[in-house]
């Protein structure tokens, strides 16, 4: 086995009892010490893949290993050496911050003090509230506590399932900073997220949709691969605008991004004729400008 590979997924498929296909022939390699993003919309199979990696569910076919431990055969090894943070806040709400942390430390046969240096930067932020019940913490603090609990046994690999979902923008940014620091300490981190803008925080990302990996690359590479022309357009009738743009022959895609609609076309489009087209459709106060693609544009492009 390759020394530099921390997580290896080989042709893994998974179908649930109700016949929903969660994963189809997924291949993936995460390098040791990498901050790797698994990015895709809800229901794409992110949670299923992470659960298979933590040995929580069994794949129908294919093999997967974490740190060379097979997720089926060596599940005990995996369970004592990885840190896992489920998508839903899953600590004991009726236990205080400190009690939760101490419980998980003991569970893994260690103490808070023994591994304090690893969680210190995160834990100091919630330490003032250590007597507070976990259920009474704010969303951002809950995530910090959950991360501390997942880290308390010095795992080699950290698997995080949508850690930033439902967390405010500031806390999200802080959270990614913490992940970067952990990566610098040598921990391999696989993190899933539905937010495409978070992809730029990762070293490499995999785009997953409907149980298939669409692309694996660094964020820069993904942007470089983008081969369409992009226009940001804004008018007085935004809702109608998307429909009107999608009707055009040259249009590859049109998606709303904030206050603008991003129009992707295979070839450069003549702005004057486009303005005329929109005016004919009844749009006024039309603004448009050519833009450079961001990571989200690339994902939208890959997904359709």
């Amino acid at each position: 086995m390759n020394d530099s590979i921390a997580i290896k997924v080989d042709a893994v498929s998974k179908q649930y009892n109700d016949h929903t296909v969660a994963l189809q022939e997924v291949d993936l390699e995460v390098r040791r010490g990498e901050l790797f993003g698994l990015i895709g919309p809800d229901g794409a199979g992110k949670t299923t893949l992470i659960r298979i990696l933590c040995s929580l569910i069994l794949a129908d076919s294919g093999r997967a290993s974490v740190e060379d431990w097979d997720v089926v055969k060596d599940y005990r090894k995996i369970r004592s050496n990885i840190g896992y943070m489920p998508g839903r806040f899953s600590l004991y709400q009726d236990l205080s911050v400190e009690e939760n942390l101490r419980f998980f430390a003991t569970t893994f046969g260690t103490t808070i003090r023994a591994n304090y240096d690893l969680i210190k930067d995160i834990y100091v932020q919630i330490e003032p509230f250590k007597k507070r019940k976990a259920g009474k913490l704010s969303g951002g603090m809950k995530q910090k506590l959950a991360l501390s609990c997942a880290l308390i046994h010095k795992p080699k690999v950290l698997l995080l399932d949508e850690p930033t979902t439902g967390v405010d923008a500031v806390s999200r940014k802080e959270f990614w900073e913490m992940l970067k620091q952990l990566r610098d300490k040598g921990i391999t981190i696989l993190v899933s997220t539905p937010y495409m803008d978070e992809a730029s925080m990762c070293e490499r990302v995999a785009l997953i949709q409907e149980g298939r990996i669409m692309d694996v690359a660094s964020p820069e590479e993904i942007i470089r691969k983008f081969d369409k022309e992009l226009l940001a357009i804004r008018t007085n009738k935004m809702y109608q605008l998307i429909g009107d743009l999608r009707q055009m022959e040259q249009t590859h895609s049109a998606f709303p991004f904030g206050d603008f609609v991003h129009l992707a076309t295979r070839e450069k489009i003549d702005e004057t004729s486009l303005r005329q087209y929109l005016r004919d459709k009844g749009h006024t106060s039309i603004q448009m400008k050519p833009i450079e693609p961001n990571i989200e544009d690339c994902f939208m492009d890959l997904m359709i």
């Binding site: 040995s55 005990r76 369970r79 489920p86 899953s90 998980f104 569970t107 893994f108």
Partner: peptide, 9 residues
Amino acid sequence: TMEILLVSP
């Protein structure tokens, strides 16, 4: 929380 307990030793 059972999920977390399972993914523990």
